[in-house]
């Protein structure tokens, strides 16, 4: 792993509250976390532990109540919606549990979409789209519609779409949650390869065997980090 001068993710004392008064819910109660370039991090936790909220904030889909978030060196606090969209487009690749491909749109067009929004010119778009599809091994399915693909294939298309802009961060929210065991291992193998290629991956899951693939496992409970374990020498930050 090359020494990273600036972490991909650098969050400090992140708090997220929903609602007001009696109905107030603390989803995150002060989470601090640094993810270096090239790390493969699994975030684990039971439902209600705040891992989805963390994922949404990391993905700039939601804003924290307080705390700071630097993504790839950029302070994203206080950016307006347009700027956030730009950062999402350039720096983050999303992989969702429910695939979230655009329906009635070919695999190729789905993968090309982020490039289109980024304003990449057509020949460059074609080259990069084809490369991304090849990387997930679906070059021969480029013209298929999502409903003509298996779950595993759809998720691989989604991974290609997440990769195509060469984002600093690959954010996967339970990417294998809707997949059978074979497709699960296909997709996880893909993540392994991407990690080997130096991609920074943050993956949210509640399955231990999925987390086992990662080089670092962070456990959340009640909106706080319970443990932060690197494979190899264990680093445990006790419950705060």
């Amino acid at each position: 792993m090359p020494p990273a001068t600036r972490p991909v993710i650098d969050i400090r004392a992140l708090v997220k509250r929903y609602g007001h008064g009696d109905t107030e819910v603390h989803a995150l109660r002060g989470v601090s976390l640094t993810v270096e370039r090239g790390e493969y991090v699994a975030v684990m936790g039971a439902s209600g532990s705040g891992k989805s909220t963390l994922m949404h904030i990391l993905g700039l889909l939601d804003a924290p109540t307080s705390g700071t978030y630097r993504l790839d060196g950029t302070d994203v606090n206080g950016l307006d919606e347009g700027a956030l969209g730009l950062v999402r487009n350039r720096r983050i690749g999303f992989v969702f549990q429910s695939f979230n491909l655009i329906p009635r749109t070919t695999a190729y067009a789905n993968v090309e979409l982020p490039l289109t929004y980024a304003g990449v010119k057509a020949p460059e778009r074609r080259r990069r789209t084809a490369a991304a599809l090849a990387q997930v091994g679906l070059s021969d399915r480029a013209d298929h519609l999502p409903n003509q693909l298996s779950g595993g294939q759809q998720q691989r298309v989604a991974v290609a779409r997440a990769l195509v802009t060469s984002p600093a961060l690959l954010l996967a929210d339970e990417p294998t949650g809707n997949l059978d065991s074979r497709s699960t291992s296909d997709v996880l193998d893909l993540f392994d390869r991407l990690s080997d290629l130096g991609r920074t991956i943050v993956l949210i899951t509640h399955e231990d065997d999925v987390a086992a693939r990662a080089s670092r496992v962070i456990r959340l409970r009640d909106g706080e980090i319970l443990s932060d374990t690197k494979t190899g020498p264990e680093v445990t930050r006790g419950a705060a």
Binding site: R88, N100, L113, Y117, R161
Partner: peptide
């Protein structure tokens, strides 16, 4: 709605 959400997550500007 969901498709719009996906597009926005992928960085589609409001104008688009």
């Amino acid at each position: 709605t969901r498709e719009i959400g996906i597009r926005k997550a992928l960085g589609a500007p409001r104008r688009v």
